[in-house]
Each structure stands twice: as structure tokens, then as C-alpha cells.
Write a protein that binds this DNA or RNA. Structure first.
Length: 152
DNA sequence: GCCAACGTTGGC
DNA sequence: GCCAACGTTGGC
């Protein structure tokens, strides 16, 4: 089983929004970065766990845990001209972008702030804490996963 | 709101 | 294939 981290802006789609969905499950659409797409399309499997991370907010940090409940399938929002993530170059017959379904497992007891993660040498290799990182979906090693949870 | 860092695009 | 220009991300 692999572990992951999903970034989202809480003003757009936060953990409370996921919690409000039926069965606390939703598709993770809108990823428009090839590296992040490849992780989802090629490497994520049902049963994998992920951190839910709030970005671009007052206190960015890890707020919860999700589970992958459906493996990658075409991201239909790329075909919708009305959608903010519309991509005219994604052809329904040969989709360019993919998404997975995630289910909320639980909120963390507290937000683990980015600043705190950055201060921990044990996880200095996490892409999340590296300068200039812009991946919205990234892998997390088992060791990093366990360490982050130990901070909760 | 600012701006550094990054990925993508397109001219050549 | 190079690289400047541009748009976006995301911390602060």
C-alpha cells in the first residue's frame, strides 16, 4: 500500500466539503500537472491512504486522512467548456487528465502546520516542504507517513 | 497583495 | 532544441 498527499485550497474544496459529500466521498478532479497525473493514473490503487493538505490559506497544513476508493478514470471536467479546468486539448476518446475517488477516513485531531513540518529534519525530503514545490499530488513514504502522524 | 519558483507554450 | 514570455501556484 502506498501513501500520498493531496493539496487543496479550503476556499475551493476543503476537508469540510469532502465531509459533506454523500458517503464522504468525492472525485479528485482538476489536476492539470503531468507529474501529479502520472502518480494518480499509474501508481494509485484502491486502499491507498493520503493526507489531505490545505494550501493557500491562513495556516497551511495537513488536516486529515483520505482513502483511495476508486482508481484513476478520465477527468470529465476537462471536457466541459464551462469548467474552470476545461482543457480543449483533452479528447474524450483519448483523455489527457485523470482523477481518482477519495473517501474521508478522519480529520486529524489538530492541523499539523506546514511550518512545523518544515522544522522537522526527519521529513526534510518530503516534496511538500521543499522550496518551490508545486505538486498538488505527491507520494509520501511509509516512514514520512508514520512520522507525520506521530506529530498529531 | 506581493513575488519567487515553476511548468507550459510557441517563435525561431 | 532553445529559451523568453507568460500564467499559475502558494507561502508569507
Amino acid at each position: 500500500m502506498a501513501c500520498w498527499l493531496f493539496k487543496s485550497e479550503p476556499d475551493t474544496f476543503g476537508i469540510e466539503d469532502l465531509a459533506a459529500q454523500p458517503r464522504q466521498t468525492d472525485h479528485w478532479d482538476g489536476v492539470r500537472n503531468y507529474q501529479a497525473r502520472n502518480f494518480m493514473r499509474d501508481d494509485m490503487t484502491v486502499g491507498d491512504l493520503g493526507f489531505f493538505y490545505h494550501s493557500n490559506t491562513k495556516e497551511p497544513g495537513i488536516v486529515g486522512i483520505v482513502e483511495i476508493v476508486r482508481a484513476a478514470y478520465p477527468d470529465h471536467t476537462a471536457f466541459d467548456p464551462e469548467d474552470p479546468h476545461f482543457d480543449p486539448k483533452s479528447d474524450p476518446d483519448e483523455p489527457r487528465w485523470f482523477m481518482v475517488d477519495v473517501k474521508l477516513v478522519r480529520r486529524l485531531a489538530r492541523t499539523i502546520p506546514l511550518a512545523e513540518l518544515k522544522a522537522r529534519p526527519e521529513i526534510s525530503d518530503m516534496p511538500l516542504v521543499r522550496k518551490g514545490n508545486r505538486l498538488s499530488v505527491m507520494p509520501v513514504t511509509d516512514e514520512q507517513w508514520a512520522f507525520v502522524l506521530s506529530l498529531e
